[in-house]
Amino acid sequence: MHYDKIVERDAAYAVARAALSHTRPKRLHTQDYHEILWLVNGKARLHLDDGRRVLTEGDLVFMPPDCAHGLQGSGEESHLVNVIVPTSEVVALAARHPIATRFFAARGSAPVIIHRDIRALSRLSSRAVTLESAPRSTLHLEAFLVPLLAELAQEARDLPPNLPDWLAKALIAADDPEVFRDGAAGLVAQCGMTHAHVARTMQAHFGMTPSDYINARRMAFAARQLAGTPDSLSEIATEIGLSNMAHFHRLFRKQFGMTMRQYRIKHQKSVIQPV
């Protein structure tokens, strides 16, 4: 897909909303632009060359150019918002704010997926409404992108300023179930370093092992599934890559101070559609 074929002439960006079809895409497609998309309701499958990712309400995806992909709705109606951003705008933004490259991945790379909680999702959707009604100028695009990037950078688990860039990118990627499902090995693979080097670096900066970090991400994901979906414990265990249910229960209780059943009763609520 080509930017100049789907975006109005001289427009710096495009915004669209869609209800995803439940039909599996017949083929994956690529594009010559960056795309930001997020689910405001429901679940979806993001199909990629190397498999698929399950997206839930609040998942924010930074899709790079030349990454073959397709989307499919799952379960109840799946609604998404997407913002199309030309590569030239990303390059210009990254020149002034290098941290943008942590989220806008290089051409042909895997997408970066970050979960937004209900408050952050509401802010994001509100900004999208403003962007949608604004002139399609670089000024208004940056008025949307800069606060989003600043918010993501600020809350990126308070990453130390001297953290190696390879580790910072790997930790962001580790929010993806496709990564943490493989445990510490999944994180180490994202780093491109030896396990021993990754472990030493994480111990120096965070005082924890790769396994400790990944298990925390797994439990955070499990908590979101408990609160926002009817998925069974065994289904959630499979999603996060834990086959030992007793170990799963121990990890969850250690992180949240209650059982998964107690957590679900306390936190489960109806899906809220952000305005």
Rank of each mutant, 00 (worst) to 15 (best):
Q225S: 07
V129F: 08
A220Y: 01
P160F: 15
T209Q: 01
L121M: 11
G183P: 00
K169E: 05
P230A: 11
L171E: 03
H140E: 14
E142T: 12
A216L: 11
V179W: 00
P210F: 01
L121S: 09
A223R: 11
H205W: 11
M219K: 12
M202R: 02
N162L: 09
F206H: 04
L159P: 03
T201E: 11
D175R: 13
R116K: 11
V129E: 15
M219P: 04
L148N: 08
A173S: 07
Y213V: 00
V146P: 04
A216I: 03
R200L: 02
L187V: 08
S133N: 13
P210A: 04
R116D: 10
R136I: 03
F221Q: 12
L171R: 08
A134V: 11
D212P: 00
D176P: 06
L167R: 03
H205T: 01
R218K: 15
V179H: 03
P160A: 13
F180M: 00
S234D: 13
D212T: 11
S211Q: 09
C191E: 08
S133P: 03
A168F: 07
H205Y: 15
R157S: 09
P160T: 04
D182I: 02
L226C: 12
Y213R: 02
S126K: 14
D158P: 08
S125T: 15
S232A: 13
P210T: 01
H195I: 04
A227Y: 09
I118Q: 13
G183L: 00
R218A: 06
M202P: 07
R127P: 02
A156F: 11
H197V: 02
A128V: 15
R200M: 02
R123E: 15
A227H: 04
A222P: 10
A134L: 07
L124K: 10
A196D: 12
Q203C: 05
S211T: 11
E151F: 10
H195F: 10
S234I: 12
D182Y: 01
H195R: 09
N215K: 00
L163W: 09
R217W: 01
S137F: 09
C191Y: 00
A184E: 06
P210H: 04
L149C: 02
T138K: 14
L141I: 04
P210Y: 02
A189I: 04
A184D: 00
T229H: 06
T194N: 01
V129R: 15
W166R: 07
E151K: 08
T130S: 14
L152P: 06
T201D: 11
E155K: 14
A185F: 01
L121W: 10
I240Y: 03
L233S: 14
V188T: 08
A237Y: 04
D212E: 06
V146H: 06
L163A: 12
L167Q: 05
F221T: 05
A199M: 14
Q154S: 09
H195P: 01
L139D: 14
I214W: 00
I214P: 00
